[in-house]
Simulated assay, not measured.
Amino acid sequence: MGAVHRYSIMGAGMRRLGTTLAALMLAGAGIAGAAGTAQADTDASAVCETGWGSLEKHVWTGGEDGGSYKPPLVDIRTGQHECFDRMVLDFKGTAAGPIDYQVKYVDKLVTPASGEIPVEGGAILQIAVGPNYDPSTGSQSYPGQHGQPLPGVDITGYKTFKDTRYAAALENDVRIGVGVRARLPFRVTQLDDRLVIDVAHSWNATS
Score class of each variant (00 low, 15 high):
Gly157Phe: 11
Gly53Glu: 03
Glu82Thr: 15
Tyr101Gly: 01
Gln80Val: 05
Gly152Phe: 05
Val153Tyr: 07
Thr111Leu: 08
Gly79Tyr: 08
Gly152Met: 02
Gly122Ile: 04
Asp107Phe: 06
Asp100Gln: 02
Leu125Ser: 06
Ala113Arg: 11
Thr189His: 07
Asp193Leu: 09
Thr137Ile: 03
Ser54Gly: 01
Ile176Glu: 05
Gly79His: 04
Asp198Val: 10
Asp75Gln: 13
Met1Tyr: 12
Ser202Arg: 06
Tyr105Asp: 08
Ser54His: 08
Tyr166Lys: 01
Val178Cys: 08
Ala3Ser: 09
Gly138Ala: 10
Gly177Leu: 00
Leu73Phe: 08
Ala35Val: 06
Tyr133Cys: 00
Thr111Tyr: 04
Thr160Met: 00
Gln102Asn: 12
Met14Phe: 14
Ser8Lys: 14
Glu116Lys: 10
Ala34Phe: 13
Glu64Tyr: 09
Ala23Cys: 10
Gln102Gly: 07
Asp65Val: 02
His81Trp: 10
Gly97Asp: 07
Pro143Lys: 05
Pro72Trp: 09
Cys83Asp: 12
Ala123Trp: 02
Leu26Cys: 09
Gly62Glu: 04
Phe91Asp: 00
Thr160Arg: 01
Arg165Glu: 02
Ile127Tyr: 04
Tyr142Lys: 00
Arg175Lys: 15
Gly79Glu: 03
Pro151Val: 01
Val47Pro: 02
Asp41Phe: 11
